[in-house]
């Protein structure tokens, strides 16, 4: 049948798995953001709400697991969620459609390359 393109190879189970990944990421990060903000406000540790932070500072704060650490961890989970989704599609399509799997591989490589280029530059 003409309409049965490879997209239909994506089973409802796979769609549900992808949906669980992204929803879990959103919920966990929102909880961490809320916990971090409440803790920071309770301890009156925020002096400037719009203070910018480098990636190094954010990673260092996670190790301390204080209020900023919770927010930093939330931010990394937010950012990791779509990346995990891309990796999941790579795994899924590698077993189903070798030509389509190139697309998420290129996307993932571009994202990583863009980040590394900026870090080096």
């Amino acid at each position: 049948m003409a309409e049965d393109g490879p997209q239909h190879a994506i089973t409802p189970r796979a769609e549900q798995a992808l949906s669980r990944i992204v929803l879990a990421g959103a919920v966990i990060s929102a909880v961490l953001f809320a916990a971090g903000l409440v803790t920071a406000l309770a301890s009156s540790s925020i002096t400037d709400a719009s203070q910018k932070m480098s990636l190094d500072s954010i990673v260092a704060s996670i190790a301390s697991m204080d209020s900023m650490g919770l927010i930093g961890l939330g931010m990394l989970i937010v950012i990791a969620t779509p990346l995990v989704r891309v990796l999941a599609t790579i795994l899924y399509f590698s077993q189903r459609d070798r030509r389509l799997v190139l697309l998420p591989i290129i996307t993932f490589a571009l994202i990583v390359a863009g980040f590394i280029l900026r870090m080096l530059g």
Binding site: F33, A34, G36, L37, A40, I46, A49, S50, Q51, K52, M53, I58, M68, I71, G72, G74, M75
Partner: peptide, 8 residues
């Protein structure tokens, strides 16, 4: 990135 306002 400003983490506090981003979180809010």
């Amino acid at each position: 990135v400003a983490p506090i306002i981003t979180a809010a």
